[in-house]
Design a protein around this nucleic acid. Sequence first.
DNA 1: CCGATATGTTTGGTATATAAAACGAAGGTT
DNA 2: AACCTTCGTTTTATATACCAAACATATCGG
Lengths: 183, 183
Amino acid sequence: MDDIWKQFEQNPISHSAAHHIVAIVELLERNGYARVSDVAKLLNITRGSASLTLKSLKQRGLVAEDENRFLKLSDEGETVASSVRGRAFLIRRFFMDVLDLPSEDAEVDACKIEHLLSLATAERLAQFLRYFCAKDSIAVAFREGWEQYEGSCDWASTDSAVCQIERIAKLACEVKAQDSEQG
Amino acid sequence: MDDIWKQFEQNPISHSAAHHIVAIVELLERNGYARVSDVAKLLNITRGSASLTLKSLKQRGLVAEDENRFLKLSDEGETVASSVRGRAFLIRRFFMDVLDLPSEDAEVDACKIEHLLSLATAERLAQFLRYFCAKDSIAVAFREGWEQYEGSCDWASTDSAVCQIERIAKLACEVKAQDSEQG
DNA sequence: CCGATATGTTTGGTATATAAAACGAAGGTT
DNA sequence: AACCTTCGTTTTATATACCAAACATATCGG
């Protein structure tokens, strides 16, 4: 129970399941319908794979189908879809608006972690984004300073890429420690 | 190939493998040695499971053992360990110092995503943390404003970009309500 | 030397998540 | 009617990642 690292496996929704469900929502929005083979095509997997995964999602009560085998989401499925899409949106915005990452990088990393963030984290991230993007002078000054701050670091001259991370982590640690002493 | 969502499966290191490797580092730091059963005990899995996972990590050249079957990491294994631990550190710091999440929540979410962040994202996150934690007046004012900001948000004075975030936040709140009903 | 304990591996089983290939059903074309 | 395509499912196989249990080995105490 207090095996923190095992929470990964006990996540309410798997990466694969999350994307099958979001695929259905997107197909419904785009085409008005979603069949097994539409999901398979969108996710670029075989119809067989999609069929099996969707079967288990039906059994879990997240996905349903009408009399002509057209897929739809249950209320719980809609909730999961909204939850995943909301998180993906927040994370992408954070990566692009705050960290100023290229949209491709933001997309890939957001896609990997969208289904893993807890509700508490997502809410705080949303709140932070609002504050960061605010128009008041403090936020504006902070954002301008942050833009200037880019590239003003000397870590670029360090040896290996991973070494940088270690160094950066230590630096962040020192900054925090100094802050605590004086705060 | 440009299936972004499939990058999750093609991540350089799995969650399980990352934790086996980090476990070895931590055991070496703590006890000076690491055996299969020490890793199993630390991760709270059976010796059989640890044995199999470590076997594949040996075959991948990340883990090695001496003549008495005591485990150690190869240079590549050390690199992976540093990379994962650096990311975990950065994410925890972001969750706790910036989002002000309870350390337990920060720990759980950081553990889920530590092995998934790209180098580019980790570097930018580190840079942002440094800027956020800086002692200059702009950063100080921003942090103070952020502390006050908690709980309060003005929905009327938002532009369109922030408005989207707002909608997602509302969505998150709805999801929360449904989560509570089910829990 | 013998038995108990600790350690590591192997085997068989579960669950997820994929592919490939075969199969059945439905619908359209000639 | 005969043929082709699309669609969904099923089967067989792969890989990861776990458990439980059996098995092998090694070490230590009496």
